[in-house]
């Protein structure tokens, strides 16, 4: 389970600045449970964006966006609508955003922040990773997470340590995350995103929120009690 919450609308509208046509992607997995990216939220977002003068070329709510193969197939069915859009707005956890970015050559914006559950993680088999940082940066980085793709979690561009596109840590197997981000932003003609100076990350947001933490603790304790009874 990955817990997401909506980003402030102004932040999402900021991402969509200058883009008239948007395709919306929701998820019937965790995002539906969190009421961030289920069908009702997708329809609500569609209405909100239309009120803001945007054209919604289409939308889809996919069963588990983290299943990249399925995501690719399901988006294929909406190919015309997806290709007609300037960008895709993905109303899910960071994995869903990165999985979408990995299968579509379009600008992908996150509509949510993924917050830390402090334990249980979602299940996915792709190379995307989400650190549940609570302040999603995927809009700035072409849908590739700098916290997980860069061995140093740098947010303002590459260090001097990459050689031939490979990271100084395990160069045989590890790509330089910022090389991937650079190539992707260049392909999408959005290198301007890389030029923005980002302030230090608020690592306090990486802690599980208090209300969630107490709920999880309660759930674990319940589980232990039940196990003891059995």
């Amino acid at each position: 389970m990955l817990v997401s919450e909506m980003k402030p609308l102004e932040e999402v509208l900021g991402y969509l600045d200058g883009e008239g046509k948007v395709f919306i992607v929701g998820c019937k997995g965790c995002a539906e449970v969190c009421q961030t990216g289920g069908e009702p939220q997708v329809l609500e977002m569609k209405q909100t964006l239309e009120q803001q003068g945007k054209t919604i070329t289409g939308y889809t709510v996919i069963d588990f966006l983290c299943d990249k193969a399925l995501t690719k197939l399901r988006l294929k069915a909406h190919e015309d609508e997806v290709m007609a859009a300037d960008s895709l707005l993905v109303m899910t956890c960071g994995i869903g955003v990165q999985a979408t970015a990995a299968v579509v050559d379009k600008v992908v914006h996150p509509a949510c922040n993924t917050i830390n559950l402090g334990g249980a993680r979602g299940e996915w088999r792709g190379s995307e990773r989400c650190r549940e940082c609570g302040d999603c940066l995927l809009d700035m980085t072409g849908g590739i997470c700098p916290l997980t793709a860069c061995s140093k979690s740098l947010i303002n561009g590459p260090c001097g340590g990459a050689k031939n596109g490979k990271c100084e840590v395990e160069p045989e197997v590890r790509d330089c995350g910022w090389h991937l981000i650079y190539e992707r932003l260049k392909k999408l003609n959005r290198l301007d995103k890389m030029r923005e100076v980002l302030p230090p990350k608020a690592y306090s947001k990486m802690e599980p929120p208090k209300h969630l933490r107490s709920t999880i603790m309660w759930a674990l304790e319940q589980d232990e009690k039940e196990e003891a009874v059995r």
């Binding site: 140093k152 979690s153 303002n156 561009g157 340590g161 980002l198 230090p200 690592y203």
Partner: peptide, 24 residues
């Protein structure tokens, strides 16, 4: 400077910090 990753040095199991980067 950003700094080399700890994996390159003589304490490879250390926790790398990188709270700020060279720009910040």
């Amino acid at each position: 400077l950003t700094g080399d990753h700890v994996a390159l040095g003589d304490h490879p199991d250390a926790k790398p910090v990188f709270d700020l980067d060279s720009v910040s």
